[in-house]
């Protein structure tokens, strides 16, 4: 009996430890509390897709480049630019409306008043208001005369994606073009490139 007790002293903690490990391995992940993050910081969700900070950085770079071209830098008065919607030619679906807004904001804040931007998003509403004014229903009966633009700025997202059992990579190129309204001359181009690679867990291979 003595020998049995000795073994019991060894075996019982061993078995209990084993069960502890087995049971602990079944514990669920603790829920993550909501917290604020810097919108310009790398996201915690580790995908290889384009993110808001990429568009911000590209727009800031484009802005710096635009204000240095002769057509802008030597203009007698700040040229007016129309920013067209971002077009997506990449292999990643994006929120083009959001990225167009990010692009517009970043350009507006980084060109230091050397260019002005035109926005047609309220044009329809403004026309209705002008009609009401002409009809004498609201104040300000002067004829509406919207500005036209000197240049149109386009932004196209291009990209190549690769995937393997190990993970994936995404190459993005945000290509900007500044085109003259008067003669369709391509005045300026610039491109901002991003490449991201990420590893996938072995459990998904």
């Amino acid at each position: 009996m003595k020998s049995f007790s000795s073994i019991g002293r060894i075996a019982t903690p061993l078995a209990l430890s084993l069960f502890g490990i087995v049971l602990l391995s079944g514990c669920a992940d603790a829920p993550q509390p909501v917290h604020y993050v810097d919108p310009n910081a790398q996201g915690q969700i580790n995908g290889t897709g384009i993110e808001s900070q990429d568009v911000n950085a590209a727009a800031a770079q484009a802005a710096q480049s635009i204000i240095n071209i002769p057509e802008i830098a030597q203009a007698s008065k700040p040229p007016i630019i129309l920013i067209s919607d971002v077009t997506n030619k990449s292999s990643s679906p994006i929120d083009t409306s959001l990225y167009t807004s990010v692009l517009r904001d970043s350009l507006l804040n980084n060109t230091g008043g050397k260019v002005r931007f035109i926005d047609r998003s309220a044009a329809e509403q403004n026309q209705k208001e002008a009609q009401l004014a002409q009809d004498g229903q609201v104040q300000g009966g002067d004829n509406r005369l919207a500005l036209s633009y000197d240049y149109v700025l386009t932004a196209e997202l291009q990209g190549i994606a690769m995937a393997s059992s190990q993970g994936q990579s995404d190459y993005f190129r945000i290509a900007f073009k500044l085109i003259s309204r008067k003669n369709d001359l391509l005045v300026w181009t610039n491109a901002y490139q991003i490449k991201k690679e990420g590893a996938e867990s072995a459990v998904y291979r």
Partner: peptide
Amino acid sequence: EALQAGSAQAN
């Protein structure tokens, strides 16, 4: 699209 290498749940 969220790559899970190194994540607690994947480990």
